[in-house]
Computed example of a mutant assay.
Amino acid sequence: MNWLLVIVGAAVGAPLRYLTDRTVQSRHDTVFPWGTFTANVAGCLTLGLITGGVVAGGVDSHVQLLLGTGLCGALSTYSTLSYETLRLTEEGARFFAAANAAASIVAGLGAAFTGAALAQSIWA
């Protein structure tokens, strides 16, 4: 049963990631991968909120499988972050490559901590 929750969450997360990427990127005329950045930070915030909710006892572990592992696992993607950073480096956009790597790590961790803190304030 647990694997089915992960599959259902991922079936929603993957198209959501694609649509988020395309929608956000279409609004920016730059080589910086704002679409992937947005999807990754949103996934980190959501995962922090869900995980914090589970730790606080306000969210069921099945919800964590569905939304945390499934949805967030498919929504956020380290492989695309890595690929786009490599692509920027190869195209000579080294500043954007470094900014992408650094900002993604800082914003992703910040979003996860914010989500966990928000969950604690809601369910603790």
Rank of each mutant, 00 (worst) to 15 (best):
A42R: 04
V8Y: 07
L86T: 12
R27S: 10
S79H: 03
W34D: 00
T69M: 03
P33S: 00
P33E: 06
C44Q: 09
A39V: 05
V6N: 00
L16I: 10
G53A: 08
L4D: 00
T30H: 06
P15W: 12
V12R: 06
V31N: 07
A14Y: 10
T77L: 03
F32I: 00
I50T: 12
G43N: 07
T77H: 11
G53M: 08
G58L: 10
T38I: 03
H28G: 00
G57S: 01
G9P: 01
L71G: 12
G48C: 15
T23I: 05
C72F: 05
S82Q: 07
Y78T: 03
S26E: 05
I7V: 13
S79D: 01
W3G: 12
T38P: 00
L67S: 06
V12F: 15
V63D: 02
N2P: 03
G57D: 06
T77D: 04
T46K: 12
R17H: 10
C44K: 10
G57Q: 00
Q64F: 05
T46N: 14
S26D: 08
T51S: 13
T51D: 12
T80I: 00
V63A: 07
G52E: 07
N40F: 09
R22T: 07
R87A: 11
L65H: 02
I7M: 14
P15M: 10
G48P: 14
G13V: 14
Q25K: 05
V41Y: 07
L71I: 11
T85E: 01
C72N: 15
G52Q: 13
N2E: 05
A74Y: 04
Y18L: 15
L81A: 08
R87P: 04
L49F: 14
N40C: 03
P15C: 11
C72V: 14
L75K: 10
S61I: 03
G35E: 08
N40H: 09
L86E: 03
A14F: 12
T89S: 15
T89P: 02
L81R: 04
V31F: 07
L67W: 15
G48N: 15
E90D: 12
T85K: 01
T80D: 06
D29V: 14
S82G: 10
T36G: 13
V63L: 05
L66P: 09
S26M: 03
D60Q: 01
I50G: 06
L4G: 00
F32A: 00
G73A: 12
I7D: 00
I50P: 13
Y78S: 02
V41R: 04
